[in-house]
């Protein structure tokens, strides 16, 4: 019996060592590819920053109406943004090379799964970006219009719109990635409905005085005021 135990242990040890020996070159290849790509990415990003600074790209971008969308983008300068994109693109490419090398060495077939999922990740990232942009633009639009409509709860309204769009976006992103779909569906339904209900209750009960004060102000506004003051 001890012989059989010894044999079983020897075989499992042999299999483990064999597995490690099979995977190790792939892992090393993955790490090397990643390290090399980080090095190349750093060099390329630095070069991009220098070139863009040399041609005064930030000032030119302003002339090209970059600033037209400035409120939609992060606060960083355009040249920094481009350098970061270059860096992460090269790192990502290095990661794929590493995964492919790992795959070739180990014959496990990870890369097919990872690359298949990648398209979903990219689509989800685009969704997230669009959602954040829409949320920011809508919240500013609602805030300004609500203030100009003399609504006392303008900021509350703006925040509500912003978070509704963000929650909606987050649910879409998770659903697209296929992460906990049923929980997301249920959670989103509860959360979205909850926000709408909370806003309704807040305006209907909690902010009743605020709303009635707003309406009273409009009512108190003399009807002939627009006839006395003509803006244009």
């Amino acid at each position: 019996m001890w012989f059989q135990v010894h044999q079983a242990l020897q075989q499992s040890l042999h299999r483990a060592v064999f597995m490690i020996a099979t995977l190790l070159p792939g892992v090393v290849a993955l790490i090397v590819a990643l390290l090399v790509s980080i090095g190349i990415a750093w060099l390329l990003a630095a070069a991009a920053r220098r070139i863009l600074a040399a041609i005064d790209f930030d000032a030119r971008a302003e002339k090209w109406r970059y600033a037209n969308v400035s409120e939609l983008l992060p606060a960083s300068a355009p040249s920094v943004l481009i350098a970061r994109v270059v860096f992460w693109a090269v790192v990502l490419a290095g990661l794929f090379v590493g995964i492919a090398a790992f795959d070739a060495a180990s014959a496990i077939g990870v890369s097919a799964y990872v690359l298949g999922y990648l398209s979903k990740i990219i689509a989800a990232a685009v969704l997230l970006l669009v959602g954040v942009i829409v949320a920011r633009v809508l919240s500013v639009t609602v805030l300004i219009n609500a203030v100009n409509m003399n609504l006392q709860y303008a900021r509350l309204l703006s925040l509500g719109v912003k978070w509704l769009v963000l929650v909606f976006t987050a649910a879409m992103v998770l659903d697209h990635l296929g992460i906990a779909r049923s929980i997301v569906d249920l959670g989103f339904g509860i959360l979205f409905g909850g926000i709408v209900l909370a806003l309704t209750l807040a305006i209907g009960l909690g902010s009743r005085d605020l709303v009635s004060r707003s309406l009273d102000r409009e009512r108190e506004k003399p009807a002939h005021e627009d006839e006395v003051v003509r803006h244009f």
Partner: peptide
């Protein structure tokens, strides 16, 4: 001939703007 304008509503609209739009004005 004109009658006096009640400026209260204009002042309130301005005050509402100061309370809510300072972040946007700061740009």
């Amino acid at each position: 001939a004109t009658e006096a304008v009640d400026v209260r509503h204009f002042v309130e609209a301005f005050q509402l703007g100061v309370r809510n739009l300072r972040e946007i004005w700061s740009v």
